[in-house]
């Protein structure tokens, strides 16, 4: 009885577009879905630091190096901020990281692709951060208060990243023939994996139903993907790059671009661990975690000694 009443109140709030806050009652499924989604988002920010991080020491100018360093720090900050949001649901960061390590929690498949050239760094900012923004702007209206506020804060920085990435691509595309080739190659390799970031088609998406009903998600995978395609195609044209999709065409009737088939077999493979860099990313995260254990222990031991001294004094 009690539960039914609470559920009614909860759904009334959702329907009225009020935010759910940490202390409010919420169905266990709502909590679980949020933990899965927010932690996946947090892990993506953190694992996403690795592919670009590859290029800090090789960035081709001091200015490019500073921008890249700052961007990667922003992503780490987003990760921290999202871990905190997730902790309001009653789970600790240690547990979340444990779930990443044992494979229970996932991160975005895009970060399992290698960043091979400097153009890939530009393409990531342009495409991957560009895709992230579309998703995150939509999530600013998510029903869970802490998650919604995190998205508002993060979106501003993501749009800087997108512009900086596009600037790199523009310089390459309008540069020497070798640079242009580098840019086109990056677009060819990263376009399709970027489209996969939005997840399976609505008809095949396991989690969309309740998530939409509870307004965790506000728009479907396909809606978001379409918005991303529509804004990005023109940006490629402006700098003279060609989209690696011969079926990509403006559909005047539907007022949107039609696109070719996404290789969902590849998506499944990469989600389930068999992408080019899954092992490398996880090994690196585990290695840093293990090698840092003695440092974390030292900090804890030192802090405990300080508390003791204070008590004695």
């Amino acid at each position: 009885m009690e539960n039914e009443k609470q559920l009614e109140q909860f759904e009334a709030k959702i329907n009225a577009d009020s935010k759910i806050e940490p202390k409010d009652w919420m169905p266990e499924d709502y909590r679980k879905h949020l933990i899965r989604q927010i932690s996946q988002h947090a892990h993506s920010e953190v694992i996403g630091m690795q592919p670009e991080g590859n290029w800090i020491t090789r960035a081709p100018s001091l200015r490019a190096k500073l921008i890249l360093l700052a961007k990667i720090q922003d992503e780490g900050g987003h990760g921290l901020y999202l871990y905190s949001s997730c902790e309001t649901l009653g789970i600790s960061r240690e547990e979340l990281i444990e779930q990443l390590h044992n494979g229970k929690a996932k991160y975005s498949t895009i970060f399992n692709y290698p960043v091979l050239t400097w153009a890939d760094v530009g393409a990531i900012g342009w495409l991957v951060d560009g895709a992230a923004i579309v998703n995150q702007i939509s999530l600013q209206r998510t029903s869970y208060g802490p998650y919604s506020r995190a998205m508002v804060r993060i979106c501003k920085e993501e749009s800087f990243h997108q512009r900086q990435g596009y600037e790199i691509m523009g310089k390459l595309a309008l540069g020497t023939p070798e640079q242009k080739e580098m840019a086109q190659d990056a677009l060819n390799r990263l376009w399709w994996p970027t489209l996969m970031m939005f997840g399976p088609h609505d008809a095949d998406s396991a989690h969309t139903g309740k998530a939409m009903k509870w307004k965790i998600k506000r728009e479907t995978n396909d809606e978001l993907r379409q918005r991303f395609i529509d804004k990005t195609v023109q940006q490629a044209e402006i700098i003279g790059l060609t989209m690696p999709d011969p079926e990509l065409k403006w559909n005047a009737e539907k007022n949107k671009y039609d696109h070719g088939k996404i290789d969902w077999e590849e998506f499944k493979r990469v989600v389930n661990g068999d992408g080019p860099c899954n092992k490398k990313r996880m090994d690196n995260h585990l290695k840093a975690h293990d090698e840092g254990a003695w440092v974390r222990e030292a900090a804890t031991a030192y802090a405990a000694k300080q508390v003791k001294e204070q008590v004695v004094a």
Partner: peptide, 26 residues
């Protein structure tokens, strides 16, 4: 210091070390 990116004992320290890298390169 920038080589510490994604290698530090905790994220806070990752950010601290690379932030110092940013200061120094700046």
């Amino acid at each position: 210091l920038s080589e510490w990116s994604s290698k530090a004992p905790i994220i806070e320290e990752d950010l601290a070390l690379t932030n110092m890298a940013l200061d120094l390169i700046g």
